[in-house]
Amino acid sequence: MFRLMFFEPRIPQNTGNAIRLVAGTGCELHLVGPLGFDMSEPKLKRAGLDYHDLASVTVHENLSAAWDALAPTRVFAYTAHSSTFHTAVDYEPGDVLLFGPEPTGLPDDVLGDSHVTDKLRIPMIPGRRSLNLANAAAVVMYEAWRQHGFAGSV
């Protein structure tokens, strides 16, 4: 399935919501450190409800370690600084869907990383900076999963 990656996430509740997202879609969550919270943070646990045991979550020390572990073929980085919408891609199982930290987004060195296949954006009306990280991840994850007929769902 798809691999959701949060680069240096800062807000535990967003990561908790992402845990629920990957548990519900059968995808993987990869967290790239340093994290802005401890994985035992009560807010993370509360947001993830009872889905923690149902989710595939891996914490990587840094981006280099994540690339080594995942050996990705395709990585899509989501940024407001792209003109290509997230729906313009034909997603494939194994794709890495890369999101940056709140509130800054992905830094230029990550956006320019040689592993990044393309930079994509989620459309919004003018004058809005960004969506909540967990919501943005859900929008993209469900588009990728929709393209594959919601494989594995009931």
Rank of each mutant, 00 (worst) to 15 (best):
P93C: 06
V96R: 00
R146E: 13
D113N: 14
M5F: 11
G149S: 08
R10G: 05
P42I: 06
F99P: 03
V110Y: 11
D108A: 15
T58R: 15
A80K: 15
F37A: 07
I11W: 08
T25P: 04
P126I: 02
R146K: 10
V139D: 12
G100C: 12
V75T: 06
E41F: 04
D118K: 14
A69G: 02
P107E: 09
A134P: 14
V57C: 08
G48D: 06
L70Y: 03
N62G: 11
L29P: 13
S64G: 08
I125Y: 03
L131K: 05
A88M: 09
I122G: 02
D38R: 13
L131G: 05
T84P: 03
P72E: 05
L35V: 04
T87K: 12
A18L: 02
D95C: 05
D118N: 09
A66Y: 01
P34E: 11
W67N: 01
L63T: 01
I19A: 04
L63D: 00
P126S: 06
S40I: 04
K45R: 11
M5W: 13
P107H: 07
V57H: 04
A18N: 02
V89Y: 02
L35C: 09
M124Y: 13
S114Y: 00
D118V: 01
T73F: 01
N14Y: 08
P93A: 09
A18W: 08
A66H: 00
K43Q: 07
E8A: 10
Y51I: 04
L54Y: 10
L120E: 04
M5A: 15
F6T: 02
A134N: 15
F6Q: 07
P103F: 10
G100A: 12
Q147H: 03
L21P: 03
M39T: 14
V116G: 00
N17G: 07
M39L: 15
D53A: 15
A88S: 15
I11D: 11
H115S: 07
A47R: 09
M39C: 14
F85M: 14
V57E: 12
T73K: 10
E8S: 12
G36M: 10
D68F: 05
L133K: 08
R121Y: 11
W67A: 11
